[in-house]
Simulated scan of single mutants.
Amino acid sequence: MIRARRETLGMHTLIRGDCLSVMRRMPAGSVDVVVTSPPYNLGLAYRSYKDSLSEESYLDWMEVICSKVARVMRDDGSFFLNIAGSSAQPWLPFELMVRLRKLFTLQNHISWIKSVAVGEVTHGHFKPVNSLRYVNRNHEHIFHLTKQGDVELDRLGAGVPFTDKSNIHRRQHREDRRCRGDTWFIPYETVRSRQARYSHPGTFPVALPERCIRLHGVKPDMIVLDPFMGTGTSLIAAESLKIRSIGIEADTTYVRFARKRLRAMIAQGDGTDALMEDGTQ
């Protein structure tokens, strides 16, 4: 059993501990947005977690964790779950979603596009698959889960400007902004060394949790929770939006990296240095 240790940096709380134990002690209905990327059970080399459970054991474990997420989340809250399958385990994310139907409604299913080819030009970064059977996997899932499926979103807050500006007046839009839709192209830079990625095998860009929070809607007193904090990317996103956050992480080394990144961003003020460190989680 990991004994939880808690510290506060600015508006943010970092907790070293097991997320199940920590969430059991959190007040019910105390969190507005949960955004996280748990281990995918793909055999990645985490420092203190075995990422190679049987599929059934992994699904059982994630179901219990998500039940605790449902307890601490407000009735009008949003749970953004970033997860991916593999060529060998393509059903895993969808098997999990079927299990979670008893806890949540799948309000939106967003595809995070990490790399895309437009014509003959490739944009973004991907990890190539060396296979005669499978194509490269250039996307991951973001499942937007809510309790009843009726959470009103700030679609324009996470939106994009119109390409055809005539649409603004022709369709009577109040501003040069439209819904981004359910495909999000968020590239991240190629990581060239283990040091550059904080020795963490699972990464996502800061723009991903920030966009999730913006889609839910940023409110002054809201709280964001990441039960698999890693090296603090969700907390960095919360700091950039000037809202409170709680991060839980079992690995002491990752907590130390998260603390270092968050301190640097708070000290910087605008967070430029922290955000440019390739967005590793």
Results as ranks from 00 to 15, higher is better:
Arg180Asn: 09
Leu132Glu: 13
Thr163Asp: 10
Gln148Ser: 14
His123Arg: 14
Arg192Pro: 00
Gly157Ser: 01
Ala196Val: 03
Arg174Cys: 11
Arg194Ala: 09
Pro161Ile: 01
Glu189Gly: 09
Arg180Tyr: 11
Gly157Asp: 00
Arg174Asp: 08
Cys179Arg: 13
Gly181Asp: 05
Asn138Ile: 14
Gln172Cys: 11
Pro187Met: 05
Gly124Trp: 00
Asn130Ser: 14
Thr163Phe: 12
Ala158Trp: 00
His125Trp: 11
Thr190Leu: 13
Ser131Tyr: 04
Leu156Cys: 05
Gln195Arg: 15
Asn136Ile: 04
Gly149Ser: 07
Val118Ser: 05
Asp154Glu: 01
Asn130Ile: 11
Arg171Glu: 15
Ser193His: 07
Lys165Gln: 09
Cys179Pro: 14
His139Thr: 10
Val151Phe: 00
Lys147Val: 04
Asp176Ile: 03
Ile168Arg: 03
Glu140Arg: 00
Val118Gln: 06
Gly159Lys: 03
Val151Met: 02
Asp150Ile: 06
Cys179Lys: 15
Asn167His: 12
Gln148Tyr: 13
Tyr134Pro: 02
Gly149Lys: 07
Ala196Glu: 11
Thr190Gly: 09
Val116Ile: 13
His123Ile: 13
Lys147Arg: 09
Asp176Gly: 02
Lys147Cys: 03
Leu153Val: 05
Leu153Gly: 01
Gly119Thr: 08
Glu120Ser: 14
Arg178Val: 04
Val160Gln: 06
His144Val: 14
His173Ile: 02
Arg177Asp: 00
Thr190Gln: 12
Leu145Ser: 02
Ala158Arg: 01
Arg174Met: 08
Gly149Ala: 08
Ile142Thr: 02
Asp176His: 04
His139Pro: 04
Leu153Asn: 00
Ser131Gln: 06
Gln195Ile: 11
Pro161Cys: 03
Lys127Ala: 14
Gln172Met: 15
His141Leu: 03
Leu132Trp: 10
Arg137Pro: 01
Leu145Cys: 07
Ile168Lys: 03
Ser166Lys: 12
Gly119Arg: 07
Lys165Val: 05
Thr183Cys: 09
Phe143Ala: 02
Arg177Ala: 04
Val160Asp: 01
Arg180Gly: 14
Cys179Gly: 10
Thr183Val: 15
Thr146Leu: 01
Val121Thr: 13
Val118Trp: 05
Arg171Cys: 09
His141Met: 05
Ala158Gly: 01
Arg174Asn: 13
Asp182Glu: 14
Pro128Thr: 02
Val160Glu: 07
Glu152Ser: 10
Ala196Tyr: 03
His144Tyr: 14
Arg178Gly: 02
Val191Ser: 11
His125Ser: 09
Lys127Glu: 07
Arg197Gly: 11
Arg174Glu: 13
Gly159Pro: 01
Arg194Pro: 14
Gly181Tyr: 04
Leu145Met: 09
Val116Lys: 06
Trp184Ile: 04
Arg197Asp: 10
Asp176Gln: 01
Thr146Phe: 00
Gly157Arg: 00
Thr163Met: 11
Val135Ile: 13
Tyr134Asp: 08
Pro187Lys: 06
Glu189Leu: 10
Arg197Gln: 12
Val121Pro: 01
Val135His: 14
Arg192Asp: 07
Phe185Ile: 02
His173Ser: 06
Leu145His: 02
Ala196Gln: 09
Cys179Gln: 15
Gly181Leu: 06
Leu153Asp: 02
His123Thr: 11
Val121Asn: 06
Gln148Thr: 14
Asp182Val: 11
Lys127Asn: 08
Leu132Cys: 15
Phe185Thr: 02
Gly149Cys: 08
Leu145Val: 05
Arg170Val: 10
Phe185Cys: 05
